[in-house]
Amino acid sequence: MNYFNLPLEDWTNWFVNDWLLPNFSGFFDAISAVLASFVDAVTNTLLFFPAEVIALIFILLSWFFAGRGVAVFSLLGFIYLGAVDVWIESMQTLSIVLVSTMISVLLGVPVGILAAANAKVERAVRPVLDFMQTLPIFVYLIPAILLFGLGGVPAVIATFVFATPPAVRMTNLGIKQVSEDVIEASRAYGATSKQLLLKVQLPLALPSIMAGVNQTIMLALSMAVVASMIGAPGLGSIVLNGISQVNVGLGLTGGLAIVVLAIMLDRITQGIGQKL
């Protein structure tokens, strides 16, 4: 099959080392600084309040959106986080998850809306999403470090790439699922396209969009361990620590904390989706 030689390796290396880095390192440094201060601000806020206050907020959120059972689970979960002494790491992970989810949603939902409104956009977006979801993370992990430095920022970028597709897809799907009759009725009452989108399609698509947000958060959490390999602090580094020392117990301690956060965030966002 080797009909001709494709120097993709050389091209990519040239592109990254000889063009992208020399010409745009200032630009990427600026993005990096902004994102870093954002992540730090969220982490510091979460760590500023006593653990009990944060726990209480999440327990109340669980109760309100997901019911008493989940609230009890959250309570036990937070007691676990405290008891195995991983509070700081949990908040570091949580802040990376929150920031990358926020960016994913801010960029993903509008793209999903555009894709639902315009078949051409959808055709263009689809392969990009496939690419983002299937390209092995480690392929862009190192370029992310070269561009953004070590730490929370490349982790946010990598998580964004991996976790955005469901936000786009579910938004697209949700809007398309709004039934023709409803749209016709709105049009008949004289709704403009803007009104139609904001007052009819988006509200009706909200459960689906929230399902997308939920998936985004789950994917973001699943990146925690990978993120720690590029220097992001948090629960992932506890797991990585456990793995490289063959310390099964330590690995499980950190891993369970990720599960606790995941289940809690999953139930809360699911609950929000259903309540809306």
Binding site: L141, I142, G151, S228, M229, I230, G231
Partner: peptide, 8 residues
């Protein structure tokens, strides 16, 4: 700051 050999 810990990451991996490649990251470092």
């Amino acid at each position: 700051v810990n990451s991996s050999e490649g990251g470092m």
